[in-house]
Design a protein around this nucleic acid. Structure first.
Lengths: 193, 193
DNA sequence: ACTAATTGCATCACCTGTGTTGCAGGTTTC
DNA sequence: GAAACCTGCAACACAGGTGATGCAATTAGT
């Protein structure tokens, strides 16, 4: 939770710490608080003042990232836009957030933590959007939606790994949706109805 | 490398240590040597006798796992069997190995290590098999084979995550190949040629 | 401007993991 | 069966991270 009204500079510190933690831990998950503090431009004791221990820090990190992910999904209007449009927009947004918070979002959710609640929320929204896509005929009616969702997640994750070329999110999103729906098999020559 | 002729009991120890390391580190990548030793039923000093430090241990772990993965691929006769058959067999074999050595195979390859050489070998064989599949018309001729390979890897990884139901490798492999080639979109009702 | 909050710094005690050594006793190998 | 090898155990030194504290200096809020 964002605690009681924190003073402006304190809030800046917390943000800096969370961002530093993401960057440092993404490279070395076993990095010390000292390293995180250095990256954040902050004294190690300041981290301990805000976060009692490593667990508290990673919890906050996971929660913060999950919140941003939810915002990214909501920005895609999953409930009102046509499924295909929503999926594309959501995918592009999620790619942005996930590339910025890769470590935080890969963090194993502590049971009963806020982050795990948010994760479930995210899964539900995703499942819902996929169901809408299925009702629209975009997804085969016999498909196992849970598997489809997992494949979707996997494609997003894989897109982030090898993106050294720096392709923009829209391009990546298009490829993800295309692969998710059509796979890699031969296409009927684009001539139909 | 498997060192000079190790005495039989010593070789047993090494195996036990590697397996213990896999199990323990898969749960907690930061686990101590002590924990690994306990799981292996061995004294901590014995680990240090065989592996100078943590790095040496994980290197050996990665190499050992990569070797088994290569064997799993070779057992699928990637060069002689029809591509679809080969892909299915290879996928099933790889699933077995990957589920047993998930941590070891997820290990970031040290540059110039033997494991990284093996990894490249694995990638090459995979790429080759995919090319054969493409030449056979299983994969669209315009498809980006590197992306296809990455998707394939991602599908394998995802299949391993949520396999609490304990589905057998053949079933999982079938789903992977099917999704890879056809995606989740609507299928033409099975009637034509 | 005054107050309260926040921070950096120096310092401390403490714990955990690491890597090494020596030796006695058990196991392989030939 | 003898030699060579391997292992467990105990002990040690050492490095490094952790969490806490007190204080002076800075900064935000009103």
């Amino acid at each position: 939770m964002s605690d009681k009204t924190l003073r402006a500079d304190a809030e800046r510190s917390v943000r800096a710490i969370l961002e530093a933690a993401e960057h440092v831990l993404a490279v070395d998950p076993g990095a010390s608080m000292e390293q995180i503090a250095a990256e954040a431009g902050v004294a190690r004791t300041t981290i301990h003042r805000r976060f009692a221990n490593r667990q508290a820090l990673t919890d906050a990190l996971a929660t913060s990232a999950a919140r941003q992910l939810i915002k990214a999904i909501d920005d895609g209007r999953p409930d009102t836009a046509p499924p295909l449009v929503a999926m594309h927009r959501i995918t592009a947004n999620v790619l942005e957030v996930k590339s910025a918070w890769a470590f935080a979002l890969a963090l194993p959710a502590e049971p009963d933590s806020e982050a795990s609640l948010l994760q479930r929320d995210i899964n539900d929204r995703c499942a819902l959007t996929l169901r809408r896509a299925q009702n629209d005929g975009l997804i085969d009616e016999k498909a196992d939606l849970d598997w489809v969702r997992r494949v979707y997640y996997a494609l997003i994750g894989e897109s982030l790994h090898g993106n050294a070329e720096g392709a923009d999110s829209d391009t990546l999103a298009a490829r993800i949706i295309d692969t998710l729906l059509h796979g890699a098999g031969p296409r009927p020559s684009r001539s139909a109805p």
